[in-house]
Design a protein around this nucleic acid. Structure first.
Lengths: 116, 116
DNA sequence: CAATTTGTTATAGTTGAGCTAGAAGATATA
DNA sequence: TATATCTTCTAGCTCAACTATAACAAATTG
């Protein structure tokens, strides 16, 4: 799996990590049973603190996406491909882009919609 | 227009305001030419600082959504109904909900998708 | 079993965003 | 001219995010 992190974005790094795992799982790029890199290693390669990575792993476990244990690492669990979500996601993203909305604005709209 | 602000959400208040104006404009609930409440008044009724409201108004002006001037207030400008965006938004929101994603997770996915 | 890997927990310090507050000033409007 | 409303500036507070160390516990490996 490819990791792309931008510390300049106003979105917290740990949330970027979470979102990337979510997306990879939904798309099927991360299969159930597959193991993610050790926190130490991922932190080093992304040049962030290990706790930032662990924070993301921990939350993904709470969401039921990962099984995380010491000595073993983080393994994808539970969910399967959700092509419908990916499709709807792409549809909305392109519509939002066409309407001239920024990524932040589009994301905020989703929060609004889901909160109501 | 109805304003619903939740200071407890981790999303900044000024961003909630921005998102609500975006949504209202896209849905056609706010017509071009329509005037928003004075910052003082809106701040008082939502029980937030006036600067928080002005922050939102200013950014919406930079995005080309509002025309804001002293002595006059904030007026909707430019954009029109974008039913397609609203439709895509609803589609994605319900798909995300079905997949068990939180509002935060879904919003982050959109950021990911639009950033790439 | 011993060594290694890897996450867990705790403590602590830094930085910046977001929010609040008060005040003086400038521009529309009535 | 008087009023409404945004603009700009200064200032302080709080909390989330990130970083850094370090001791510790569980799973795996040889």
């Amino acid at each position: 799996m490819l990791w792309r992190i931008d510390p300049e974005r106003d979105e917290p790094v740990y949330q970027q990590l979470i979102a990337q795992v979510h997306r990879a799982v939904l798309r099927g790029d991360l299969a159930v049973g597959e193991r993610l890199p050790a926190a130490t290693e991922l932190a080093r390669s992304l040049d962030v603190n290990i706790h930032t990575v662990l924070h993301a792993y921990r939350q993904l476990r709470e969401e039921g996406v990962l099984d995380v244990r010491r000595g073993r690492g983080a393994v994808v669990v539970g969910r399967r491909d959700r092509g419908d979500v990916v499709k709807a996601l792409r549809g909305f993203a392109s519509a939002a882009r066409d309407a001239g909305l920024s990524a932040d604005a589009a994301a905020a709209l989703v929060r609004e919609e889901m909160a109501s």
